[in-house]
Design a protein around this nucleic acid. Structure first.
Lengths: 187, 187
DNA sequence: ACCTGAACACCGTTCAAGT
DNA sequence: ACCTGAACACCGTTCAAGT
C-alpha cells in the first residue's frame, strides 16, 4: 500500500500539472483523488517542490523512452526528424494539453530550483536527440547540428503553445508543415 | 485621485503579470503598492478576471503601436521583418520577462474568458502585421503569407520561451539567427 | 465617490497525536 | 510505517459600514 500511495500521488500530480501547470498541483484535491488527507502527502513528499520535481523528472525520463522508440521505428534519420513533431502533437490530441516543460518554462521564475533543473533536463534530452539525428543525416559540424537542433525544438514548443490557445490541432500541423516547407525542419 | 488609483492598480497588475503571469496578480500586494486596501480594488475592477483582461488588452494595444513604429522606422519590408524579433527580445532584456501573451497562453485553461480573448488578440495583431509585411515583400498569395506569418510568430514565441528558461539572451539571438539562416524568417 | 474591516472558503505547510 | 485533525499564514471575494 505504501508504494501505491506514493505512485497514486505522483500520478494525480502529473495529471494536474499537465492540465494546469505547477501551480495547479493542489494538495487537497490530490488527497481526495488518492483517498488520503492532504497532510498525509507530506509523509511521501516533503514539499510541493519535491512533488513537482518528481513529476517533472519522470516526465523527461518518459520522453527519453519515447524518443528511443521513435528512433527505432524510424531508423532513417530524415524520417525520424519528420516524425519528431508527432510527439508534441500527442499532448494536443490528448485534451489540448501543453508539454509539461513548456508549461513550467512559463512559470519559470516561480519554480523551486529542484523543479527548474528537471524542466531544463527535458529540453536537454530533446536537443540531444535532435542533434544526434541531424548528425546522422550529415547536416554539418557538431556546432551546426546543435544550433539547428535548438531551433527545431524551440519552434516546435512555440507551435504547440500557439496551437493550444486556439484548441486547434490543424493549426499545429500547419505550423509544422511551414517549418518543413521553409527548411527549418529537414524534409 | 480616482483615475490615478485605477491607473496605479493597472500598472501594478501589469508588472506582476509580466513577471509571474495571471496567477501572479495578487490583490493584497497590489493594494500595498498602490496604497489602498485590497478590498478597495473591487471598486475599480469588479474581479481579478476584469483586471487581468484590462492588463492584457492594454498590452496588445501597446504592441500595435510598437509594430507601427517598427514599420515606420523600417519602410523596407525585408528590413522590418528582420527587425521584428527585436520586439520580443526587449522582454528578455528587461528582467528576463516573457511576452505576456505567451505567459497567459501557458495558463490558458485557467484563464477567464475575458482574459483569453485579449490574449488571442495579441497573437492576431502580430500575425496581421507579419502578413502585411510579407505581402509587401511579395512573398506570395494571401494564404501563403498568412501561413508564413503564423509560423514566424510561433517560432519567435518559442524562442523567447526557451531562452528565458536559460536566462540567456544570446540563446534567443542564436535561435533567431537560425530561423533566418534556414529561411523561415526572410533574410 | 471612494475606501475600510471583518468575514468567507480556499491554499501550502506544520505538528502533535493517533494506529 | 503511515495517517489524521487542527492550526497557521496566505489567497480572491463579499458586504455592511464608514467618510
Amino acid at each position: 500500500m505504501s508504494e501505491n500511495a506514493r505512485e497514486a500521488i505522483l500520478e494525480a500530480a502529473r495529471i494536474a500539472a499537465q492540465h494546469y501547470g505547477y501551480g495547479g498541483i493542489n494538495f487537497r484535491s490530490i488527497g481526495e483523488t488518492v483517498g488520503i488527507k492532504n497532510a498525509s502527502i507530506y509523509y511521501h513528499f516533503p514539499s510541493k517542490a519535491d512533488l513537482g520535481a518528481a513529476v517533472a523528472k519522470r516526465y523527461w525520463q518518459d520522453a527519453v523512452k519515447a524518443l528511443e522508440v521513435l528512433r527505432e521505428e524510424n531508423p532513417e534519420p530524415l524520417r525520424s526528424l519528420q516524425a519528431y513533431p508527432s510527439l508534441f502533437r500527442k499532448s494536443l490530441e490528448d485534451g489540448n494539453r501543453l508539454c509539461l516543460s513548456s508549461f513550467m518554462a512559463a512559470e519559470y521564475v516561480d519554480l523551486p530550483d529542484a523543479v527548474r533543473s528537471e524542466v531544463l533536463a527535458f529540453a536537454d534530452i530533446n536537443v540531444a536527440w535532435l542533434m544526434a539525428r541531424l548528425t546522422d543525416l550529415g547536416a554539418g559540424s557538431p556546432e551546426v547540428c546543435e544550433r539547428r537542433a535548438r531551433a527545431i525544438y524551440s519552434a516546435i514548443a512555440g507551435a504547440q503553445l500557439i496551437a493550444r490557445t486556439r484548441a486547434d490541432i490543424g493549426l499545429y500541423d500547419e505550423l509544422v508543415q511551414s517549418y518543413q516547407d521553409t527548411g527549418l525542419i529537414p524534409a
